[in-house]
Design a protein around this nucleic acid. Sequence first.
DNA 1: AGTAATCCCTGGCAGC
DNA 2: TGCTGCCAGGGATTAC
Length: 295
Amino acid sequence: MPELPEVETIRRRLEEKVIGRRIERAVVRLGKIIIHPSTREFQRAVRGEQIQGIKRRGKYLIFETPKTRIVVHLGMTGQLTFWDKNRADDREFQVHPLTGLQRARQHSVDKHTHITLFFRDGNALHYRDIRQFGKWRLYRRGEFEKSGFLDRLGLEPFTPGYCWNAFQLQLEGRHRCVKTLLLDQAFVAGVGNIYADEALFEARIHPEAPASSLSQGEQKRLFHAILRVLERGLENNGTTIRDFVDPDGEEGGNQEFLQVYGRKGDNCLHCGTAIQRVVISQRSSHFCPHCQPAQ
DNA sequence: AGTAATCCCTGGCAGC
DNA sequence: TGCTGCCAGGGATTAC
């Protein structure tokens, strides 16, 4: 499940690989991935366009070309991998014995490769997405700002907008439980299930605590913990549980540093208590009942 | 308006 | 061995 650190890792690697390349044509094998405007329009619009930049907002990647903005959300299992014409494809995906991750340094088109951007120089960019939750949108350059598509997203970590005042303001009058709020992209953009659990552990806050019940001190701890866990994820090139690979098919390393996520029944690294798992709004939540006591 | 529930989708796995 | 049923989960949509 690519969250901010995974998407940013992909963005950085892709930047090195695709900036300056010109799109010869787009092959779309699963039309429903492109939800705006239409597959045909998309293919027409990107033909001949040169990729000039790649931006990120929350979990969205934005490919910039002179006439368009291509907005990609990887959903749960989306992978963007560069296909180098001078490199041989791996014969098959290696499946990680524990995580089930399907990984290849470079792969040819398989049944999950839904979109390929072929570049004029003979290289390509593959989009592979097993669960098909990912979505691509295309906007004309001028239309993109006007669409306000990214405006509904909340605070962006690592930018001046992510400040203590704004954070407090966002928390005001929110009665939902804090874990649910963390998953809401209109609150803080880019936080998903893994980093939400990790941040709550670091801030020593029970995931089911109502957001409005947090003390000033807890709010402050959460504000800083979000940044810390995202930063650590970034330093380790993302967290690979099942599907995350960078454009070279490389896994992240942050799974080694997770303190609660996926550790149900294991000992808390801080106090030794068994980590618990509960379901909060259809999502699994992991926490230490001793370090993160309910009110 | 704010919040909660439903749906989409596949592969892996437990259980029989 | 092979089948069935369940689970993971981001976000758009719908319902309240």
